[in-house]
């Protein structure tokens, strides 16, 4: 649910990075944080375990260009990917405006991606949200690694609604901003009613 504040002339939008454990959600946010100008970003808040696994969420606010004199702020969140943190994962989806599903292309994670997508759809349904009505894109991450699955095959299994697709190697920054721009545009288009 976007917050449009006419008094301070700000539009706030909530974007959630979702996906299986260790797929690169936090890595996406870390790269965006590292490469964004100081004046356009806030702190990167990470609620992680002592082993650096996301416990609750990561949060990064960034400002993009103005729209009709309104400052547009993107509130980027990740969810904990580990299966047993589903209660926390569901909480982060509340009032989401856009979703980036980060899929791990490694062959060994093929099933984990499908399970995570099913879990996303299920968690959204519990809030009464329909994934088809929420701006969503899929990022196929770790494209640089050996032993990766065919994107065509994975996409056939996990993208029945033909969400836009981006390839990435988040650890090297490849595709990270392209993905962010992709989802930001979709979310603003939804505001516009397109």
């Amino acid at each position: 649910m976007p917050l449009i504040n006419y008094a301070s002339r700000v539009i706030n939008l909530k974007i959630v990075y979702y996906g299986p454990g260790l797929c690169g959600k936090t890595t996406n946010l870390q790269y965006i944080f590292d490469k964004t100008d100081q004046q356009r970003k806030g702190s990167l808040v990470s609620l992680a375990t002592e082993a650096d696994r996301t416990l609750f969420f990561d949060f990064l606010p960034i400002e993009v260009a103005q729209i009709n004199g309104f400052q547009t702020k993107l509130h980027l969140y990740t969810v904990p990917g580990q299966v047993f943190y589903n209660a926390s994962r569901k909480l982060i989806l509340k009032e989401v405006d856009g979703i980036v599903f980060v899929a791990d292309l490694q062959v060994a994670r093929f099933e984990a991606n499908l399970e995570s997508m099913d879990n996303l759809i299920e968690n959204l349904e519990e809030y009464g949200y329909d994934i088809k009505e929420i701006p969503t894109i899929i990022q196929y991450n770790k494209i640089d690694l050996p032993n990766i699955a065919s994107i065509t095959e994975l996409d056939k299994e996990m993208n029945p609604y033909n969400f836009p697709v981006f390839k990435a190697s988040a650890a090297n920054g490849q595709g990270v901003f392209e993905t962010l721009k992709g989802i930001a545009k979709l979310v603003v288009k939804r505001l516009q009613g397109k």
Binding site: K185, V188, G193
Partner: peptide
């Protein structure tokens, strides 16, 4: 409604979201 704000957003505005 917020149409007065939102109707005026052009595709060009959206393309320029990250132009800075």
């Amino acid at each position: 409604t917020s149409q007065s704000l939102l109707e005026n957003i052009s595709d060009d505005d959206i393309d320029k979201l990250f132009d800075f």
